[in-house]
Computed example of a mutant assay.
Amino acid sequence: MQAQPLIAVSDVAAASRWYQAILDCRSAHGGGEYEQLTFDGRMILQLHRWDAHHHAHIGDPQCRPYGNGVLLWFWSDDFDDAVDRIAEARATVLEGPKENRNAQHREIWLRDPDGYVVVIAGPYGDVGM
């Protein structure tokens, strides 16, 4: 089994560009209503425009913050490269980069353009480096 999270966004193309820059992933679908983002050929995230098609369970774009209680958590083999991409993209950093000794890795917490919280974590054992 593999998770394939889907988030609702206001601008699919802009969100796709942001996630591609931050996660070093690729577009596998493209379009203004729906997108699939992949890394090494595996889908890691789906983007869906709030008002495209009728999906009763996608949520309400008027309720903020989006994803309250849910974090989009990504693991990266190369945490330092991820931090460099985040700086280059001038992403909004909420916390870090920091060591999380409980999880035995480094992590950085961001806010995406739609307000979702995104965490990039390094590999297990990536502390004290």
Rank of each mutant, 00 (worst) to 15 (best):
H48V: 02
S16A: 14
G31P: 13
M1R: 02
D24N: 14
Q2R: 13
F74S: 14
A14Y: 04
R26H: 09
H57E: 14
R42C: 07
L6R: 06
D114E: 08
Y124K: 08
P65I: 05
D114Y: 02
E99H: 10
Q36I: 09
S16V: 02
I120A: 03
I22V: 14
R111D: 03
R90A: 14
Q4N: 11
F74T: 15
Q2E: 10
R49Y: 00
A103Q: 12
P123L: 05
I44E: 05
Q104G: 03
S76R: 14
L47E: 13
R42G: 02
R90W: 01
P97F: 04
D80E: 14
D114P: 00
R26K: 11
A3H: 04
D77T: 09
H29Y: 13
H54R: 12
N100V: 13
L6Y: 07
R90V: 00
A28W: 13
V70S: 05
L23V: 10
H53A: 13
D81F: 00
C25S: 12
A13D: 09
S16H: 02
W75Q: 12
P97S: 06
R17M: 02
C63F: 03
D84Q: 08
M129D: 10
E88M: 04
G67R: 07
W18F: 15
E33T: 14
T92I: 15
P5E: 05
W75Y: 06
H57S: 10
R85H: 12
V12F: 03
A8W: 02
D51V: 01
G69L: 11
M1F: 05
A82C: 11
S76I: 02
P113S: 03
D78Y: 10
V93T: 11
M1V: 05
A82F: 09
H57Y: 10
G69Y: 08
L110S: 08
T92M: 09
G32C: 01
S16G: 06
W18M: 02
V83T: 13
A21L: 13
L23R: 11
E107Q: 15
A121S: 14
D51N: 12
A15L: 04
I86L: 12
N102E: 10
K98D: 03
G115P: 01
L71E: 12
W109Y: 10
E107W: 02
D40N: 11
L37K: 11
I7F: 12
Q2S: 14
A91S: 13
L45N: 08
P113V: 05
K98E: 05
Q2F: 10
C63D: 04
R64K: 15
L110R: 07
Y116V: 00
G96L: 01
R49Q: 15
W109R: 10
F39R: 02
N102H: 06
A15V: 04
E107F: 03
K98R: 12
D112W: 00
V83K: 01
A103W: 15
D60W: 01
F74A: 07
G59R: 01
P113C: 11
D51F: 01
V118A: 08
V9W: 04
R106W: 07
A121V: 04
R106G: 09
A14D: 08
A103C: 05
V119F: 03
A103N: 02
